[in-house]
Design a protein around this nucleic acid. Sequence first.
DNA 1: GCGATAGTTCGATGGCCATCGAAGCGAAGA
DNA 2: TCTTCGCTTCGATGGCCATCGAACTATCGC
Lengths: 228, 228
Amino acid sequence: MPLQPDISQIASLIGDNARARMLTALMGGKALTATELALEANITPPTASSHLHKLVEGQLLIVRKQGRHKYFQLQGHDVAELLESLLSISARLQNPGRKTGPSNPRLRQARVCYNHLAGELGVALFDSLSAQQLITPSPDNTQLTTAGHEFFQQQGVDFDQLKPGRRPLCKACLDWSERRSHLAGVLGQWILDDLFASGWAERELDSRAVRFSERGLRLFLMRYGIVG
Amino acid sequence: MPLQPDISQIASLIGDNARARMLTALMGGKALTATELALEANITPPTASSHLHKLVEGQLLIVRKQGRHKYFQLQGHDVAELLESLLSISARLQNPGRKTGPSNPRLRQARVCYNHLAGELGVALFDSLSAQQLITPSPDNTQLTTAGHEFFQQQGVDFDQLKPGRRPLCKACLDWSERRSHLAGVLGQWILDDLFASGWAERELDSRAVRFSERGLRLFLMRYGIVG
DNA sequence: GCGATAGTTCGATGGCCATCGAAGCGAAGA
DNA sequence: TCTTCGCTTCGATGGCCATCGAACTATCGC
């Protein structure tokens, strides 16, 4: 039993370029297969297999076998949060001053952060919900107000079905491009899922970017009272 | 200008055992010299010099030259936060289930987290301030209530002198041993500094542990209304 | 100035590990 | 059953990098 946890183990897992690319690819929230991840990291299947084995061993990924495919995904929210904070710091250090965030406008506007919406729109959503007093934040678990509860119930959220397991309903997640909070947690996940389900937006195939349809964007802004 | 920031650079800096030990040593908040850090990491001065050069280059550390000594410290709060979250995850993964936190009771009870108080006492302090409505937390910058403002003014805080620069006055920091919040930010720093200044506690020489005197502990608990 | 101490530079060494090609394995599908 | 596809295992290769000893520079105390 160590006196202090060994940081270097986990850090060195992320510290390899190929593995880092796999992990950031998995920040898109979708489970990806071994070959897809090999493609993403620009390495051959054998190399990828070795890396993935280590990542699973190190408990950063979990794997699900399905037929002859192997689907990998991030182990959990805390891993996603760690990656997000690494992205945040790296962005700041590598873009000295300047405008923060990715040059790719699509990524900056809206992207998936593990299982919820991030980017300009994600931050705007969070701000709007705060301004309307639908959420009342607290440090560890951001709370939904009674007004917020009512609001989301009207939007079709079944709070009984989103059984409050160990995951918090609401949670503030620091956005690496905007450096402000966006909404994570079960509710954040519901909002993103709902976006896709209602056809207002769709995932881009090979990236974390979220593409809104023109109509979808309009309806999204209207529903959540986002101005600007 | 990269489409996504390169995580692996920073992660690999932390991913070396010797460097990781230096960084965690610097979580104590004190600036340390090159030889002290070499001692801490169990390496010879030349090796340490090479590592420290890389850490400064990578903007994780800043260095201050003083005579023939070179004092190193963490570059800033975000670096400290990144390390803290790494500690948190590593602790969970390496102590499967079981009781969280370090086995060293001194470290568990009270330790320095960069520049503020962490551990059981740090968490208890945060809870007590919350319960007394002296702080009212929000996700990005935890606010001081008017009652809290008054309270700390009585304790001798000169809010004019703690000029609100870019750093927030209050801030919730996730504790890696307790998995709950403790108080960071300018005010968190003031509390720790005050602890040392008033002689209620002192740093242990070679670790992050904070040693309270018997009298100091009693006064500390009383001042901040901590029960238990 | 002269020794002592802090830190660096240099070069050599060694080990770890990412990488790949080739071969193996297992599941799907025809 | 044979082929194809997804993934893994094995072995070999190469490169990067942590490490140290020795020599060097700089600063301090005297």
